[in-house]
Design a protein around this nucleic acid. Structure first.
Lengths: 255, 255
DNA sequence: AAGTGGTCTAGACCACTTA
DNA sequence: AAGTGGTCTAGACCACTTA
């Protein structure tokens, strides 16, 4: 004889009563949100090993299957990383992640490479209306980071990065910034970049850019406008990258 | 008392004995491959409604849960599309899919739009060594499709598409080609484009391109090199798109 | 009302890692 | 040997669509 016919329906209603309900939110998505909230709140900082699935299922009062669906969803968004036999961990901005998730420039012949930072400057200034809108901030001040980056020994990237001054106190004292800037955001400021959207255009190099990149004025450059967001969707960073695409390209998979 | 302790282990070994085994392939991936094979073979053409999960599970001799994991994997790769309450269908190249999966150009102000084809020419010619290598073909001949496409009434895209002559017999008799060329591949030639990789660069417009796009010679253009693949990974199409990015951009999500 | 995919449970066992 | 995530089953019920 099967036991209680509507255990999960009761659980569903119990969870639903507590949260905002529009129509129907499955249990596993409610669990996913609860776990995401803990990660956002810093209860489980990046790199932390989560409790085992069995323990989490007990804590949350759901079956292991439901708990796994929640973890699967978080893993699909790269919020957590799972290793069979080892455990489940909050995702970190190590070099590998930066290279594969956030760096899309590759050599035509040699594929993906890590860029080397040859110059880096941090300036405090007032943000333009556009910048403050993109960062959704009410304060006036922003940090402006300017970098020159090289691949295969040649400067091919010029970056202009703008972030909220208030969110990154004393950023200028961290100079020279490490090559991996998202690791800095994460470790020094508790800010996790979770995803980004990019808009690509072709533009002409002005005299300054031409001098930096060692090309002629008016040469075509790939312009990449990136808006990066935190785990909760808050915009964190606005970045313009100008890229010389002779021997290099931006790689995009359509699937 | 729980019944047979190793039902699935037996099933696993039975399946394993039949197929190529390197280490360990889970049942659900074996089921996924079997279903993919049927789709590739044309047993289930695009648009077909698959049997219900219950029926498929019975046919394959696995539980509904395992069958669902196989379908989930196929749905993640957009090979099939599922609709709660309606059924599961083999994915089709309708306008929506083309717009969201394979067309990444959007208006800076108005977002995603469908391009309009203003000019389209199909020519038969010998493929270059590079083209034949990219298409992995041994024959000499290719079709070269040249199109001019407009967004918001302005020509901003010039496309040069190269496909295997042998795979698309009498393609020139289909002129004028429909706006959605992947739908043509699918319906007229039984060729399904499943995924594509793109390489983006910034280049200068030559005199012809400048004339077509209504810009000055030397203007920066976004060059998109696409290689599109069939369900089994075979390269199907090599495509060069040159794009005027004034008021438009290429959109890419990093996650 | 019947059929479909979607969720959830409880429990067994496997593959893999670490000690 | 013990612990972790990964697979698989059998079965119940829910949300949604169509007739």
């Amino acid at each position: 004889m099967p036991d209680g016919p509507d255990v999960k329906a009761l659980a569903q209603r119990a969870k639903a009563a507590a949260g905002v309900e529009l129509g129907f939110t499955p249990l596993y998505l409610q669990v996913r949100q609860k776990m995401l909230d803990k990660i956002i709140a810093g209860t489980w900082p990046p790199g932390t090993a989560l409790p085992s699935e069995q323990q989490l299922a007990l804590q949350m009062g759901v079956s292991q299957g439901t708990l796994r669906k929640a973890l699967d969803a978080l893993a699909a968004d790269r919020v957590i990383v799972r290793h069979q036999g080892r455990g489940t961990f909050v995702a970190e901005h190590d070099q590998r992640r930066t290279l594969f998730q956030f760096f899309k420039i590759a050599s035509d012949e040699d594929g993906r490479l890590s860029p080397e930072t040859l110059f880096c400057q941090v300036v405090e200034r007032n943000g333009s209306a556009e910048e403050r809108a993109k960062l959704a901030i009410s304060g006036r001040k922003v940090w402006h980071i300017h970098r020159h980056r090289a691949l295969k020994g040649r400067v091919v990237l010029v970056e202009d990065i703008v972030v909220d001054h208030a969110r990154f106190p004393l950023l200028d004292t961290k100079v020279p910034l490490p090559n991996n800037i998202y690791e800095l955001y994460e470790r020094q400021f508790g800010v996790t970049v979770a995803k980004a959207g990019e808009r690509l255009k072709a533009v002409s190099a002005d005299d300054q850019q031409a001098a930096l990149l060692g090309c002629e004025e008016g040469s075509p450059l790939l312009l990449i406008e990136r808006t990066a967001q935190a785990l909760d969707g808050t915009p964190i960073e606005f970045r313009l990258t100008r890229c010389l695409t002779e021997g290099f390209h931006y790689s995009s998979d359509l699937k």
